[in-house]
Design a protein around this nucleic acid. Structure first.
Lengths: 337, 337
DNA sequence: ATGAAAGCGCTAACAA
DNA sequence: TTGTTAGCGCTTTCAT
């Protein structure tokens, strides 16, 4: 078959001396043809290496058997793991995936939504960075499931996320129980709902343990630099100014890592003098010495729950719950031991 | 526009009281229409949130403005970085990307090739795990560029890879110059060409420095477990048996990390007693303490060279070089200092 | 069990 | 500058 041209069902029909309708039926196993023609047609398909033309199929059916996955940053372990798991799961249900990397850029994300719309994707799994989803996509009635982050105008869109408030509460509590009294809180700028939830958990834990909230211990990154760089600078400046602390809660492992670097730079012993805990259970917490305690977000479950809901919606079902909570849990490592 | 139905150019034409041909021309900026109709049509497009139907466009044009990216494992930092960079680069040239994660599974990879063919992708960037590319795809005359790994039957397919032999040579030389005489070599099972190249570089460096090759110092992983686990076990057993070494060259950072863990377990000082170097310049070498010296593969350049060549091919040019070598270079860290 | 034909939305060749 | 029309490959309805 050294022919580089794609063969069509029309051609197959001609070769099998039958009609394109029959060929189509055979390819899609719809029944209504003889064993004999079936064998003949399948033989031709094999010999000529026929591959269906998805564009034509999609045009005709107004669907693409494809799902779009929107991720902020595929080179981030956390998102990559989710994307990977989503892809694998959906593949088992005969969907392929467009992975769209927004680089946390709002304009890019909007473009991708349009792109996915244009490509007739059957559904979207979305870890969005947008405050609001684009109007047109939300009006298109295309099934969307959000993971981790929830755009404000997504009232009817199911979301799968963690019990962030509680997880953050537990992390703070762990530090307190290990004797910490001055606990720094470092977070990315809390545009997103889940970051606000974490702050609440932190505050509640302090309150419940009679520790007065000290606003001077709360820091937000600007996002102008890589998070661990910003975090390192911030903690270093804090220490340089003669301030003290005995615990640090960071809302990501990368932020925690920056803190770790700063503490090391000032020869502060971890966990003896300062205890440290992050979020995400990524390589950033697993690999450093001392290894950093962290909150596992349970990426596999975030992904599989998201898929389950999306697949239900693709089947025409209405999701019973708009909010699905995946339990995050503490992974204790050297930095709090 | 609370209508969830997609509007077509036919509908636009009706609303603008013109023909679909004119609308098509305006959308694609082909010229041959008045300023006035242009404005009118664009207004309608905006108000109705028109989005083109890619399936129809692809069917008509026999191309999809989409590139397929085949990767073995998107949750691996090294591949993810390449995929990300490829996606960003191609996006600037108005191509979107299918990222296909093969999980190092041959069957999956073959399926994906078929899938990409079916989706009429205009080109493929391929970090393949296959010994041979599928027949049908190589006969389809669709532009393919391989990165890092080269299937055997890809005679006419351009490949972008590193100068692995030299890089490995330099790494070994570095260890030797720092005084190492018993250098362990640990590699994944060398099905792939670039792993054989690295072994050659290692051997040549030993030879050039009058160190006799000791086959007992050469180890291959089976691939039955995660590489750093296998590597840790392997080095631990080596030490347990009372053997000694003063340097380790690992063909990936993950393998190097396993070695690091084993050495630490036996309280062997790095770099004082044993020096260690890996490959990839990933988080696995950057984050641990001591940090691990490594060979940077120059992922950004691997990706951008791959894109450059593919874009040329998409323009109908024949690539001038079938082999493009991207220089890998040593990143020295604590483990060899 | 099979076939003829319509039509999905689009581009491009041709006509006006 | 604009419009008419064929046809890309496919599924599906309606005949037979």
């Amino acid at each position: 078959m050294n022919d580089n041209k794609r063969i069509s069902i029309k051609e197959i029909a001609r070769l099998a001396d039958t009609s394109i309708a029959t060929v189509s039926r055979i390819i899609n196993k719809k029944g209504g043809y003889s064993k004999e023609t079936e064998r003949l047609v399948n033989d031709i398909i094999d010999t000529y290496g026929y591959v269906s033309n998805m564009a034509a199929k999609s045009l005709r059916e107004s669907k693409s058997h494809t799902i779009g996955i929107i991720v902020p940053d595929i080179s981030n372990d956390f998102f990559a793991t989710i994307a990977l798991h989503v892809e694998k799961t959906l593949k088992q249900h005969n969907y392929s995936c467009y992975i769209c990397n927004t680089s946390n850029d709002e304009e890019t994300e909007k473009e991708y939504f349009k792109d996915l719309d244009s490509k007739l994707v059957d559904g979207i799994i979305c870890i969005s960075g947008l405050k609001n989803l684009p109007e047109n996509i939300s009006n298109r009635n295309i099934p969307i499931v959000c993971i981790d982050r929830k755009p404000a105008n997504s009232k009817n869109i199911p979301i799968v996320s963690n019990n962030d408030t509680e997880a953050s509460y537990e992390a703070t509590k762990l530090l307190i129980e290990k004797g910490c009294k001055q606990i720094i809180y470092i977070s990315a700028f809390p545009l997103e709902h889940h970051l606000q939830a974490r702050r609440q958990g932190y505050e509640k834990a302090l309150l419940d343990h009679n520790i007065k909230l000290d606003k001077n211990l709360i820091f937000y990154l600007t996002g102008k630099d890589i998070s661990y760089v910003e975090s390192e600078v911030l903690v270093a400046e804090f220490l340089q100014a003669g301030n003290t602390c005995d615990g640090i809660l960071a809302t990501s492992d990368r932020i925690a890592l920056g803190a770790l670097y700063a503490l090391k730079r000032y020869d502060i012993k971890i966990p003896e003098e300062v205890k440290l805990i992050g979020f995400d259970n990524s390589l950033y917490s697993r690999l450093p010495s001392p290894s950093i305690s962290t909150i596992s977000r349970n990426t596999v479950m975030l992904a599989s729950e998201g898929c389950r809901i999306l697949l239900d919606m693709l089947d025409g079902k209405t999701p019973e719950n708009l909010e699905t909570i995946v339990p995050a849990y503490i992974v204790e490592r050297e930095s709090t031991k």
